[in-house]
């Protein structure tokens, strides 16, 4: 699977004070690969996801994107972040802007597109996530599932090389989870490189190329989904799966 690595983490360590949240993490994500990260709460999976675009800093190790090491703060970091889209658990749509403005803003400010060009692209993307009719609404007027689909459109508008999903469905009502997962499934089929932190085992089984299981700040298993779900190697993973798959 190690064709053309897009995201590479080597010996990454991170501490919150005494707490060692990421311990010697090695992870490679190839172009077009979909990697799903699962694990119990507090295992460091969200932190891992957020280090990839440096929303969290690391204490040691290297992170490379498309061969380039992650820059420190400043313009270079901003440019690099534009190449990696991120979708958050709490959507984080800009509350004072309409849906269309949310999707167009960074295209104009960062990609320096003309406003009408950006709006045209935004409408295409909103259409793709099934929300073309809602362009002029404010985020607060939409359901969680709709907001999250707008957030995905907003990330796609930058034409990113990869997308990071930090528990994209965890804040959603059960009936809205599917509409978001369907959009993600479609992206996976279209060959988008994705790192997805989630508790949706169904998504992991059907859409992932690899499943990474984390516990206590370490990557415990990194395997094909079918393998992982039917024959987990570690005691920790067996325990985790038995708890979540019981009901």
């Amino acid at each position: 699977m190690a064709v053309d690595p897009l995201i590479e983490l080597r010996d990454v360590n991170k501490y919150y004070g005494e707490l060692h949240v990421l311990q010697d993490i090695d992870l490679t994500v190839g172009k077009g690969e979909v990697v799903v990260v699962i694990g119990p709460s507090g295992s460091g999976k969200s932190t891992l996801c957020r280090t990839i675009n440096r929303l969290e800093t690391i204490q040691s190790g290297t992170i490379r994107l498309d061969g380039q090491p992650l820059p420190e703060e400043g313009k270079a970091l901003a440019q690099l972040r534009a190449e990696v889209g991120m979708v958050f658990q709490s959507f984080n749509l800009f509350a004072h802007k309409t849906v269309l403005q949310n999707v167009s803003l960074a295209q104009v400010k960062v990609r320096k597109r003309k406003k009408d060009e950006a709006d045209k692209r935004s409408r295409e993307l909103l259409d793709r996530v099934g929300l073309a009719a809602h362009a002029d609404k404010f985020p607060a007027q939409m359901s969680g599932g709709q907001q999250q689909r707008v957030a995905i459109a907003r990330a796609l508008a930058m034409d990113p090389k990869a997308l990071l999903f930090d528990e994209p469905t965890s804040a959603l009502d059960p009936e809205m989870i599917n509409e978001v997962l369907e959009v993600m499934q479609q992206l996976a089929r279209d060959g988008m490189t994705m790192v997805v932190v989630t508790h949706e085992m169904g998504f992991a089984r059907t859409a992932a190329d690899r499943v990474v299981f984390m516990a206590d700040g370490k990557i415990v298993e990194d395997r094909a989904p079918e393998d992982f779900f039917t024959h987990p190697e570690s005691e920790r993973a067996r325990d985790f799966l038995s708890k979540i798959l019981k009901h």
Partner: peptide, 22 residues
């Protein structure tokens, strides 16, 4: 909320863009 600034930064906006527009 902190997430507003994080979302802006994750889209590649600079500090001053994030502060003035978001």
């Amino acid at each position: 909320p902190k997430g507003q600034g994080e979302a802006a930064r994750s889209l590649g906006m600079t500090f001053s863009q994030t502060l003035t527009t978001i």
